[in-house]
Design a protein around this nucleic acid. Structure first.
Lengths: 303, 303
DNA sequence: GCGCAATGGTCCATATTATGGAACGCTTTT
DNA sequence: AAAAGCGTTCCATAATATGGACCATTGCGC
């Protein structure tokens, strides 16, 4: 740490967000359950996600050295995998700089995914637009995946404030971030305990999120009817979110609005909470129309 | 073969196209170069592509048995890989039917790919729309990937005729199909020979495309200035295409128009050829504006 | 109601496969 | 001129993926 820190000099908030997002991509899948004879596949997709997220705002692509450093794997292994990804068309290597970025198959896959893959995404589109419009802030759709929350949609608002703490593809443990916390809080206590236990090894990266804090946040979320991220993750960056349930009434996603502390006073929060809840209900009914879709939770063969 | 043939009863053309497309997905990567210690990764991505293409027009998803059959791999292996893909979020399993379809990460990847991954796609968008509009037929963008051509964009025309012989994600050997043939014909003779040699083991699946036929098609394409697929692949389904070059003057993509025999008489072909050539030039200049992007050719460490 | 043939899923000994330290050639920085 | 960085290749090693056999259910025909 510190070697590549100077890469992210844009602004203080963006930096923090970027760094931990990348780091998390790397360790998210690994800490899941037993790979059961598919370790190399997991590693390959983790690397693919890493390329995707790191190259997000670097048009030139990412260098092998950097990928190796960030992923923590030896150069040789990363290189071998990148060659495989490249031959599959999911990663392309710049002819001049030999840097890596997503390949055309990534686009094709997205195209083929279309509506069917991410029903919540399409169901929430209208809600996100409306919310961004009326709040003038940035809104997000976050979906649960095992004990993690992944940001799948981002809708910029018309206002001048841009919150860059979260971007499409970012992945954080359940509880970290407004939408993420909204999902976590909607789970039964036992499941929350499981999730927190699963994150035991990772929590060090989120120093402010110890178990007690998370339980406290969960209780507050349940009392308020919406999740509030009051700058715990990135100082000054506030956000609020509400859960979205699937047709089986499982909490699987969340709508959230991100802004800055000054724009989220108690009065405005009360208003926005109603808007969020209304749009969450709208999204839910929208999904119900299409049919049921559930993302399989991480296999918990624990003990 | 024959066991799952009844799955595709939609119409005669669609059926043929679907079947061979799926088959090809399976064998495309494998027959490439040496896996070099990344075999499982290649297999995993092949399976992912297969899920994507097979679930394309089956909203319910694809069953494990069918995937195993089509891919030719044992159930156990396919199942293990699907679990890995599922844990990565790239594949989702229907809770009720336990069928598989693309997961939300496929959408996220497509989103993150955005413009940068598939510059030809974005560069060609306008051209495709114009071509579909003026021809009232369906147009495609095809990109070269090694010795294969992959359809990355499809633009429906306003006309009543729908050609379903090609869809986004379909992958055929260079030379099979109008756009594919346009790319092949633009290569130097030596490289064409290499490509044909690489397909030696696969050609059996394309019975009408023996070496002699392909060389003949190449010569005709060069003479005419455009590639014509006169129903060789799917009887009655005709198409024409022209090559698109990158800034290094390499043939890397093609624009094509698909229709039926009756709508592609000699007179109309001459007109459309000019339109295609004009739009190809437009796309090329469009790409040049953004910057150079080349898809790495398959490593030919041959001999 | 009873086979029969599908299905999805699991197990585990086997050997095929991925692994990553070390070394190379190269360019850039010091 | 040395040092440090880069992308890339090699190869013995051991960890890994493999897939045949097996089980539990479900759906169908009779």
């Amino acid at each position: 740490m510190g070697v590549d820190a100077d890469r992210y000099q844009v602004d203080e908030r963006g930096q923090l967000a970027r760094r931990s997002a990348s780091w998390n991509i790397v360790h998210a899948v690994e800490s899941g359950s037993d790979p059961q004879g598919a370790q190399s596949i997991q590693r390959a997709f983790t690397l693919l996600n890493l390329v995707a997220v790191m190259a997000r705002d670097r048009p030139g692509g990412v260098s092998l050295a950097e990928l190796a450093r960030t992923s923590g794997r030896p150069k040789a292994s990363v290189h071998r995998m990148l060659m495989a990804l490249s031959q599959a068309g999911y990663v392309a290597q710049d002819a001049d700089t030999s840097c890596y970025r997503l390949g055309f198959q990534a686009t094709v896959l997205g195209e083929l995914a279309g509506q069917s893959a991410d029903r919540f995404g399409t169901a929430a589109t209208d809600s996100l637009i409306r919310l961004s419009d009326l709040s003038a802030d940035t809104t997000f759709l976050t979906v649960r995946h095992g004990s993690y929350a992944v940001c799948t949609r981002r809708q910029e608002g018309p206002g001048p404030i841009r919150n860059n703490a979260l971007a499409v593809g970012d992945r954080h443990p359940l509880g970290v971030g407004a939408g993420s916390l909204a999902i976590l809080s909607a789970l039964p206590d036992q499941e929350i305990a499981d999730v927190l236990a699963a994150h035991a090894g990772i929590r060090q990266r989120y120093p402010r999120y110890d178990d007690d804090t998370l339980w406290r946040l969960v209780r507050r979320t349940r009392a308020d009817g919406y999740a509030l991220n009051d700058g715990l993750f990135v100082p000054g960056s506030w956000a609020m979110g509400v859960v979205v349930r699937d047709t089986a009434d499982q909490p699987v996603a969340a709508l959230s609005i991100a802004s800055i502390e000054q724009r989220l006073g108690e009065q405005r929060r009360a208003e926005l909470a109603l808007d969020l809840q209304r749009e969450a209900a709208f999204t839910e009914s929208n999904v119900a129309k299409v049919g049921m879709a559930r993302v399989p939770a991480e296999r918990s063969k624990d003990d």
